[in-house]
Design a protein around this nucleic acid. Structure first.
Lengths: 262, 262
DNA sequence: ACCTGAACACCGTTCAAGT
DNA sequence: ACCTGAACACCGTTCAAGT
């Protein structure tokens, strides 16, 4: 993953020959697909998906948007590359047979963390069938663990697909759902004066949600208002662990049924 | 859900007074938020999310985009309304105590179907904490079933959250993943000459995926290439049922542990 | 082989002005 | 109270032309 893989074999032109650039910019790096991907991912992390544009990436690299198209084909192609880069952020463990249940849980947790490190990325996964090199390595690793654990092939494929769907689905809800109660509930935010009110107004805090649910008319929503308080102190980490536990245990039961242990 | 809720108490101006309209258009309906939501949903279903714009909705209603803002506030507000409309497409069953496991499965299946009826809608759910009237009724119904089945309150809340995440997650993968093998694999598509190549090139068929996986170098991907064939004949309906089974059974076990049946 | 400026066909949103 | 046209600040992508 070398960001600069071309030797700096030619000096930049002297200042008086340079076209006037938009004020202060570091010297332009050579354009590489790695540089593009890295820049785009940084922009995605810092400014969010709906501020990620080809023009802004290009600007950051000190070029025009058109120049990117020679390297990545389209914005969609760029998103593919970003997605695969993130999938590859952790390595798959060697399968250890009997420890397969723990290993699947580890992989699931690692994948959730990778997504959480790049929150808006989950939205990118939407129209995509991940088939980049890292996605393939991920699938290979999961299948290796399941088969080493004695899960029959057909069930292993299904389980592998369900694992991906489950982790993605949970993390999707987590990322777009109410925030755990960290930030103060009504900080007006400096609010970028540039754009209208586009930023998809920050989600409410878990406590705000719990409060709202508790305030609902009890005759129309008896259950929701009765249990409202539990919405407040729900812990995503715990909830995720429960889900993965249910999933892996259930899968193990089916595996034992389909191919009873020798 | 009345689409026109204003009496036609004033005739349209005679033709010679009308400003020239973009050619052939039916007589303009009064603008209502229901009409806006309905039009937008129709557009979403027929043309996909990235062709859904305020301008196109407005055009369909024979106005300018600016006029919509008085009714729905923003595009984001409109998407909220669309989302809640679809959540309300099916009614929640009355809780039947002991049948709770079947009922949860029914609700899950119905919710998946609602999403599948409006494929691109899943992308809309992303930044949203669904809190519209129909979303609340949905949550209320799920909690009612779980509690009637004897699931303790705290676990019921967690289970309800996990159910939503699971259904959304599965359906998300299903919608954006490879198509079941219906369409011919290499039809060039008439391809709307209007836009570049924006349409997020159609996902590959399940068979195409299986074929590609089988062709992978077996030394690098021994497991993936060994089980490739099972990727071809995997049935989403079956897979969904398996996932929901695992989930409900696991939940029932925890419920029994937490509060042993009287 | 790689990069560029300029153009095309779009966006969401605001706002002063109209009825 | 409701609707409008025009403007502002953006988009992704193409393409002929440059080096």
């Amino acid at each position: 993953m070398t960001i600069r893989d071309r030797a700096p074999d030619q000096l930049p032109p002297p200042p008086w020959q340079r076209r006037p650039r938009p004020a202060s910019r570091r010297r332009r790096d050579p354009i590489t697909v790695d540089a593009i991907v890295e820049t785009a991912l940084r922009l995605l992390d810092s400014d969010g998906l709906d501020r990620l544009s080809m023009r802004r990436v290009a600007d950051e690299l000190d070029t025009g948007a058109a120049s990117l198209y020679w390297h990545v084909g389209s914005k969609d192609g760029l998103l593919d590359l970003i997605f695969d880069r993130v999938i590859g952020e952790h390595e798959m463990p060697e399968p250890q047979g009997a420890r397969w249940k723990e290993q699947i849980k580890e992989v699931a947790r690692a994948q959730r963390q990778a997504i959480l490190r790049h929150r808006d990325l989950i939205a990118v996964s939407l129209g995509r069938v991940p088939m980049g090199p890292n996605a393939l390595r991920f699938s290979e690793g999961v299948l290796a663990i399941l088969r080493a654990g004695g899960v029959p092939d057909r069930l292993a494929v299904t389980g592998h697909l369900l694992l991906i769907a489950t982790v993605n689905g949970f993390t999707l809800d987590e990322v777009s759902g109410p925030r755990p109660d960290d930030a103060q509930p009504d900080d007006p935010q400096p609010d970028d004066p540039q754009r209208g009110g586009k930023e998809a107004s920050a989600p409410p805090s878990a406590d705000a949600v719990a409060g709202y649910l508790a305030s609902l008319p009890a005759d129309q929503f008896p259950n929701l208002s009765a249990v409202a308080r539990y919405f407040g102190d729900d812990d995503p980490d715990q909830r995720f662990d429960l889900l993965i536990d249910l999933f892996v245990e259930g899968l193990a039961q089916r595996a034992a049924l389909a191919a009873p242990p020798r």
